[in-house]
Nucleic acid binder design. Sequence first.
DNA 1: CTGAAAGCGCTAACAG
DNA 2: CTGTTAGCGCTTTCAG
Lengths: 332, 332
Amino acid sequence: MPKIIDVALEAGVSIATVSRVLNDNEKVSPELAERVRAAALALGYRPNGIARSLRRRSSDVIALIINDVSNPFFTAITRGVEDVAQRSGYSVLLCNTDEDPGKEATYLRVAEQQQVAGIILSPNTATSDVSRLLDAKLPLVVIDRILNEPVDSVMVHSFDGAEEATLHLLASGWKRPACMTGPSGASTASERLQGFLKAVRQHRDLDELYEHAPFTQEGGVRAAAALLGMPHPPDALFVANSQMALGVLDEVRRRGLRVGQDVGIITFDDAPWAPFISPPMSVVAQPAYEVGRRAAELLMERLSSENPLAPRAVTLSTTLIVRESSKRLLAS
Amino acid sequence: MPKIIDVALEAGVSIATVSRVLNDNEKVSPELAERVRAAALALGYRPNGIARSLRRRSSDVIALIINDVSNPFFTAITRGVEDVAQRSGYSVLLCNTDEDPGKEATYLRVAEQQQVAGIILSPNTATSDVSRLLDAKLPLVVIDRILNEPVDSVMVHSFDGAEEATLHLLASGWKRPACMTGPSGASTASERLQGFLKAVRQHRDLDELYEHAPFTQEGGVRAAAALLGMPHPPDALFVANSQMALGVLDEVRRRGLRVGQDVGIITFDDAPWAPFISPPMSVVAQPAYEVGRRAAELLMERLSSENPLAPRAVTLSTTLIVRESSKRLLAS
DNA sequence: CTGAAAGCGCTAACAG
DNA sequence: CTGTTAGCGCTTTCAG
């Protein structure tokens, strides 16, 4: 691999000049610049990003740390982040924590050590440790889940979406709704539960039925099994994410229940498959792409601003999309 | 941020000793080691990975470059890669090219410049340019799609899977199958088409119906519209990936066609939603997790071996999973 | 406008 | 076993 000195020799200039034309920030005479460019091309020179980062103490790479790559919600966020990052000349490195605090810590460390320019993080829990990043003044924006630190954030109104969904279930004629939500450490899980409970409490004589489980398909079957196996089971389910919903469908089918007749279902997140299952799934859609886009924009602003900005918080709204699974068909 | 010299001062030793205990490769007296560890802890010292990489000329990070994060096939691969990489102490940086050759080139460059230890790449086309990586002797393993270079690879028998699926369609009583496949530059797309054609040619008087389109939901609707809009349309569809299948479902529904009666469908990739749509989707399952696992294993071997290894190629088999969408119900 | 030189923080010979 | 020292490849003062 040719290094900067090789280019300098080839072009008959100093390495400082090569560096200048390659970063085109300072004034270099056109002819010298041309010679340098020709030399670089001829040698197939590529700047060593590591050396550059070491010297500059930062790179043009940002890290996006998410909880689950296989969740369409997060992949949509990823697209949003990538689109704006790319436009600003940044590459995004995606890190998947798999809801594992250990992996989260590892990736946070890797990101710090690799001197990324900034981080967009979907924290495992509100107490995930980002103190080192804060100490290092590393630009950070938190998404999806609340973090107990004063940092930029872009969230979604989970509480309102959950309340709306539950009210919709009740308005559709279901009499005994239950909530299946994620692990209690995740703010999204608890907000969705609280929104559900608020709706339930607006009606008299309703039991407060709910179950916590991992935000996965497997978590969905477990929670559904627990709820549907009760002596007096619910007749409608508000599910906190689309992966769990797939598990619920599995369990519901295993028990021979018919969605729309024996049980009503509505879930958070408008997955690509939602319109195609039987019956089509009613959902609370989150503006996932937008979450990613806004987060990346906040980060870019922070990266290009000299003075420290005060933390900003943006919260987006959900959209209720009623399809069939939440409607109540009277059995014939 | 404290640096190695700070730790050395605090512990009253030289920076070399600090480096040694932190990398615990050489012999250091237990008491000194203990003093160093204590000092590092007290100062909250974190090694600067960039400086280390610059010096070592390599890092403990590998890059996984895939075509589409929102495709469950690739996310399953990702899990496989992560599991084995983590076990060997490597972090994996995921890069999403979105089927865009420009993004692919960018990420290849970033990976090279960031001095990743190795790369697992799902190339856009067989002619993606990896010459720089080869020149730099950067360990590379290619997955999913063929690349015209002698490198490690782990592939899936797309051809056989496609033939088997098509034969199944024919055996189920469908009379006029068509193939919807990806862009012709992708080897998976052409292999699946060829497998389909081989099956078709085993029967007399069958037209060779097929359509190329992007490997996306949108691509699926376009190809389905083209095929189903023909004067003499096909009565069965072999779809080359699960994202396209969602688009097909959309278009089929729009035309008021009933899957299983008016049209039979089978698709590559066993997406999580496949069992839950209506009717349940028959698929050719790919061992995606395994692809990732094997690829990472090949890479790890190459990373830990001094001498250059000859390129190895592993090819895994698909599994036909017959559900309902491919069965032919005679209209009542 | 251009070059010389000083490091960025760390590892790896090489001595002792 | 431990310390000294020379860079890894690049950017950035500081002179000229």
